[in-house]
Design a protein around this nucleic acid. Structure first.
Lengths: 345, 345
DNA sequence: GTGAACAATGCATGCGTATTCATCATGTGC
DNA sequence: GCACATGATGAATACGCATGCATTGTTCAC
């Protein structure tokens, strides 16, 4: 049996309801001029025929697809899985569809953008992925707004929303200092993105303001994943001659978790007794019993709000907002990987 | 500045290249009859105009969108995040787009399906979500194939691919028995799906074959999440009078992990010394140092292959395969939450 | 009671592309 | 050199819906 296509069209419905095709279209278009009675007749006929309006066809005339593209660059980090979930929920509530693209960490998103353009999406949200200026202008030229989530590209036309990562880095530094740490290590991630670099910058700046020498701050780069940080931590502490730092900043929660497990299960160290650790993001996984991770919470909901407001999906005639960089402050969440100093109790 | 739409069409390209619109269309359609020279001219013109074919428009005539819908019912379980990622990668490689819908756990997917139908997707993959027979026939009527992933609905027209959950449950039972367990507990999940029930059935069946009495098998239902299992475990062991089982089967890995953390961090029990635990799925998170979870591996890649093969995306004229239930065997992965008996070493 | 404003409706057209059909040029085998 | 197959091309049309425009019927104010 062949895959027969029984899709009825607005003409079929119109015929059955005894109205014109225009009436059918209007019946399904909120706010258009149609009598309640007519609408009922149309709905009745539509129900009988299992009619569902063809959004593809309507997009052709309205030039709006109600599709938003979400490009995710690091699905292995649960933070981005949560972000994806949150965006998806939010956009669904608004009656929009989400076209998803996954991109390998570190890879650029040009190919994904190209597909996105073909599908005439109403907007693009880009998360943890690289973006070339060529693609930015390709999008902007055709009136497709694009917002970087948790990332910005200095000097670029693309707008971005992010946590104030530098300020967050400072919060971590302060927490360590308050807990009495004197020598420090960082496990950093993707060097291409601004996220990791900003966190490092704020962290180091604040430490130096407190009189810590740069030589007392060790930095190791790991792949931006649990395993990457696990291995980086092993490398960091394998050298027995080097004196061990008091405090370790994992540049995000999943990496902090990887580092903690390496410390505890491979190196026999206690956290926080032997070494305090902090992360960044506040993913739900970090709250669990084995970790109880002290971290900076990214205000995801605010960031999503901001992203959508810059996209102006409701108002296509609004110009594209270019070059915006909107940092939003996160706050420190005390848990158990840094001993809580009396003044923070 | 208003959001100007500079999108050039195949006519613009045709004019610049000095050919007809048909030629442009053919230039971008693999396998169509066009001279290499003409194609080059077209590409050249297209490049100059930043032309990108409008897939929406082309879908209107071809009746194919190259979009596949993925409906995910439980994003909180990392297993499904991994599944989503794997499908997305695979479909992208094939040049298809993924439209994603997230549905609350336990909720039915009717609304999502309705949206999917509007967008004329080429196929639907449904994961951890309910599906009404009405929606199944809505899809089938219009020639849209639909496959349930890791779920089946007995007597339904919808096809499904899944792990052989009952057989997997038996494997777990055998592992516990081989390790010498004599009394058992299960923390089960969503009672609406077949997945949890099948695992339980296989597990119990095998135990009873080994002479275990039903009264020595306790069953607690938890919400299908880390937290749900954490709480269920607390409830299970709070009753001090009840004798403690030797072995606990968490119906999937994330729940097993929640249970383990409750046991270790709240109840002061050691795993596996005081109590052995097994999960199901083999998510990467379960391999990590704190858990080292013994589990049954779901053959995700095979399952994805099977799903796509049933969908017949490459051959739209192929009839829809109805009512298929394709179980694929998983295998037991020994790690450290069950003491490995000598015969399995 | 009259003209104007307005709501409801249908007709016709356009959105950007794929595809059918007819035409023409070119090459093939004999 | 001829009949024929083959490949390349353009004109025209269809895909399913939204919308501008014209028309009709209705209500309202005066």
């Amino acid at each position: 049996m062949t895959r027969s296509t029984n899709r009825s069209t607005s003409f079929d419905v119109a015929a059955l309801a005894g109205v014109s095709q225009s009436a059918v279209s209007r019946a399904f278009t909120p706010g258009s001029s149609i009598a309640e009675e007519t609408r009922k007749k149309v709905y009745e006929a539509a129900r009988k025929l299992n009619y569902v309006p063809n959004s593809i066809a309507s997009s052709l005339t309205t030039k709006r697809t109600n599709i938003v593209a979400l490009i995710v660059g690091n699905m292995a980090n649960p933070f981005y899985a949560h972000v994806l979930h949150a965006f998806s929920k939010k956009l669904q509530e608004q009656g929009r569809q989400v076209l998803i693209f996954t991109v390998d960490p570190g890879a650029d998103s040009d190919e994904a953008i190209l597909h996105v353009l073909k599908y005439q999406v109403d907007g693009v949200i880009l998360t943890a992925a690289q973006l070339s200026t060529r693609m930015t202008s390709m999008c902007h030229d055709r009136g497709i707004p694009i917002v970087l989530f948790n990332r910005y590209i200095p000097g670029s036309d693309a707008s971005g929303v992010r946590c104030d990562n530098a300020a967050g880095g400072r919060l971590i530094a302060e927490a360590f200092l308050a807990a009495g740490a004197q020598s420090f290590a960082m496990i950093t991630g993707d060097p291409k993105g601004t996220t990791s670099k900003d966190r490092v910058r704020g962290f180091v700046e604040r430490l130096q303001e407190a009189g810590i020498r740069r030589s007392d701050i060790v930095e190791v780069e790991g792949q931006s994943s649990y395993e990457g940080a696990f291995n980086a931590a092993m490398g960091l502490f394998r050298d027995k001659n080097r004196s061990r730092p008091d405090a370790l900043f994992g540049i995000n929660d999943i990496m902090a978790m990887g580092a903690i497990d390496a410390l505890r299960y491979r190196l026999g160290l206690r956290v926080p007794e032997d070494l305090m650790v902090a992360g960044f993001d506040d993913i739900p996984e970090g709250r669990r019993a084995p970790y109880q991770l002290t971290t900076v919470r990214q205000p995801i909901n605010q960031m999503i709000e901001a992203t959508l407001s810059i996209l102006h999906l409701d108002d296509p005639s609004h110009g594209i907002e270019r070059g915006i960089d909107r940092p939003i402050s996160g706050r420190l969440i005390w848990r158990n990987t840094i001993p809580v100093p009396p003044e923070y109790r």
